[in-house]
């Protein structure tokens, strides 16, 4: 029965097992090495897919460690879709709980940044907000603005300098000691065809997070100032426009309803 044959064949591919009954070679009734070619192919192609998605993380832990961690992940979370482009969304959470990686406290956050970068790479294309569009809005109405997120936008927050560590291991800046070891937040954006990681100033993650949730500029500013009194609105607005994090603005919905009434 072929479906049973396939079940037996599949069962030995994600873990070491002898060839299933009914599998043979011209010179052998139980071709271990030939069956293991398939197991090796499965393992290599899935670990390669993860290594392609998490290259800086692989560099941090080394190829051998990464492969062992990837194999452990694949056994527990094999792909449920042929779309390997997005395989491994839950790999960072797995790494956070992976005992051998416990001392690399920043690893999971670097992986979250890399996962966000791949999602941004494949996100829908969209034109970013034209900076001139803001200039035409009356100053007393700015607070009511609501921003529409660019499809590539995400915000990655870490209690470690994850963005700096990522940049050093992605060849974006030289590897060097980090004297000021503190949490970092970053935007991941793709205004055109290049994915960018934009470090955020204090309370920037709160500000952008609220805007991305559809809160007004005034609400996001208030929330950010509550989180950190040092929040600097003009600096964050400059980042907003330069990074292409949003595609358009609209006035607050309540306001529109009021205008219509």
């Amino acid at each position: 029965m072929p479906e049973a044959t396939q079940s037996a064949f599949a069962a030995g591919l994600l873990k070491a097992a002898p060839p299933p009954a009914g599998v043979m070679a011209w010179n052998s009734p139980s071709p271990h090495r030939r069956y293991s070619v398939y197991r090796n192919n499965v393992s290599a192609s899935l670990t390669d897919a993860l290594a392609a998605r998490f290259p800086a993380s692989e560099r941090i832990v080394g190829a051998e460690f990464f492969q062992a961690m990837a194999e452990a992940f694949i056994r527990v979370h094999p792909p449920r879709s042929p779309l390997l482009l997005i395989y491994g969304d839950d790999f960072p959470d797995f790494a956070a709980a992976f005992e051998p990686a416990r001392e690399i406290v920043y690893l999971a956050d670097v992986m979250r940044l890399e996962a966000a970068r791949t999602r941004a790479y494949h996100a829908a294309d969209a034109a970013s907000l034209d900076p001139q569009a803001l200039a035409s809005i009356k100053p007393d109405r700015l607070g009511d603005l609501v921003f529409l997120s660019h499809p590539a936008l995400s915000i990655v927050s870490s209690s470690h300098p994850a963005a700096t560590i990522w940049a050093m291991n992605a060849g974006e800046r030289p590897i060097a000691p980090i004297p000021d070891w503190r949490g970092e937040d970053a935007l991941v954006v793709r205004p055109r065809m290049t994915v960018e990681v934009v470090p955020l100033p204090p309370a920037g993650a709160s500000f952008f997070g609220h805007l991305a949730q559809g809160r007004t500029l005034a609400e996001a500013t208030g929330a950010a100032m509550t989180d950190d009194a040092a929040f600097d609105l003009s600096e964050n607005l400059a980042i907003l426009l330069r990074a292409g994090a949003f595609t358009a603005t609209r006035k607050d919905q309540d306001d529109e309803d009021r205008d219509r009434a």
């Binding site: 072929p2 396939q6 064949f9 599949a10 994600l14 009914g22 499965v42 042929p82």
Partner: peptide, 25 residues
Amino acid sequence: AWSTHDGVFLSDLLPLPYTQETLFR
């Protein structure tokens, strides 16, 4: 070839037996 079984994508081109049943499917 086949590559998905019980919803798991195995990411390799796996072989199948050649029978009237597999021919039909």
